[in-house]
Amino acid sequence: MLFLLGAFIVLLLIVAGSRGFSLLFGLAINLISIVALLILIADGFNVLITTSIISLIILIVAIYMNVENANTANIAFKTSLLIVVIILLITIPLEFWASAQGMGVEDQEELEAFSLAAGVSFPQLAVAIIVVNSLGVISETSVAISSGLNEIILNKPSLTPKEVFADGFSVGNKILSTQTNTLLFNFFASTFPLFFLMNSLNYKFTDIINDKLLVAEILTMLICAMGVILTVPITSYFVYNKALKKSANSINK
């Protein structure tokens, strides 16, 4: 493990150069933030409030420490923050309704020797998992779209705000396929052992689609995918709005 970590650091510094140090520093801060989130939740702090604060820190570090263009960073941050709020509003009632939180029947054997009185709200914990899981793809998609649009505006300053908005959808549609595929592959990678277990135990189709662990993974994937999809119009709107204001200011002058 240490060998792989060392190889990762060396490769990052070779490819990114001196900027690799800032990337490593940002990764270290985010790693500390995730560990702090786990510790605070385990110590009894409110799960949703703690997750919201830690998510804000992660977004600030992930965007502002990795994006040099301030305009791109500001748009990506506003978009990511809004998407996280939307995800919270969708996930909180959905998790309580689906009852997919906590452990599944497949975990019974491993948990027999342990007390289940964890003192943590498992529905809230499931919400926290989905929010943290979505931060990376949302911020990455927003940065990609906003940076692409800013480059287009820089090279074609004569574009109208409507054309900027249309270009945002064009850029976003190209990114959506890769991001949704990434989420899909992550889903299958994390559920491979579960699928093998279901196959060996001859689960019926109704048992499979109602399995708690599988439903939790599907909810995570679908909600994250919805967040990525919503990133396209919201980021495009923010860039469009900025272009509209710039156009209005130039006319007034």
Rank of each mutant, 00 (worst) to 15 (best):
G227F: 00
L176S: 08
S146F: 02
Q108G: 08
V15K: 05
L219I: 03
I58Q: 08
I49N: 02
L154C: 11
I153R: 00
I32S: 14
Q108T: 10
V239T: 12
T72G: 05
Y64Q: 11
L230P: 03
T72N: 08
N173L: 10
K78F: 00
V131P: 08
L2G: 06
I53W: 03
L230D: 04
I57Q: 09
L201K: 11
V10I: 09
N71R: 15
N249M: 07
V61D: 09
I218N: 05
L5T: 14
V171N: 08
D107N: 13
K78Y: 00
A189K: 04
L89F: 03
I209F: 04
N133M: 14
N186M: 12
A248D: 07
M65K: 09
N249W: 04
N186T: 10
V10Y: 08
L213S: 06
D167V: 12
G17H: 08
M1C: 10
G148W: 02
M1V: 11
T79Q: 01
S147F: 02
N173V: 10
Y240A: 09
N252R: 12
V105G: 03
I54D: 02
S200V: 13
F195R: 06
G44R: 04
L59F: 10
T79M: 02
V85Y: 00
V35F: 15
L11F: 09
I153K: 01
I218L: 11
T206K: 05
S22I: 13
V131Y: 12
V47M: 14
L88H: 07
S250L: 15
I90A: 00
